[in-house]
């Protein structure tokens, strides 16, 4: 099984390799710049483990695990 944004720990740096656009909410997240090739840092998860906080190019974005699962990533560090 491949690694997704939902499987990371604080401090992990990854690159998006594939976005599964089946979900409308995922498509909306792509409008914030979450596309293939972009590098991200996983910052933290909120109280109770959800939603997640990620950082890309100076912007912090939060999303739920449910959507994070659709972003397939690879480690860069």
């Amino acid at each position: 099984m491949s690694l997704t944004l939902a499987d990371l720990k604080p401090g992990n740096r990854v690159r998006i390799i594939n976005v599964d656009t089946a979900d409308d909410a995922v498509v909306r997240l792509m409008s914030l710049g979450l596309i293939e090739g972009v590098e991200l840092e996983f910052i933290n998860s909120s109280l109770g483990g959800d939603p997640l906080e990620l950082r890309l190019y100076g912007s912090a974005i939060s999303m739920r695990r449910e959507q994070a699962r659709h972003f397939h990533v690879e480690n860069t560090d």
């Binding site: 656009t21 409308d24 498509v27 909306r28 792509m30 710049g33 596309i35 090739g37 972009v38």
Partner: peptide, 16 residues
């Protein structure tokens, strides 16, 4: 593909 996703890929690739 969802058109919005197609546009996001196109635009943000250039942005990057």
């Amino acid at each position: 593909q969802a058109p919005v996703a197609v546009e996001a890929r196109q635009r943000f690739l250039l942005s990057k």
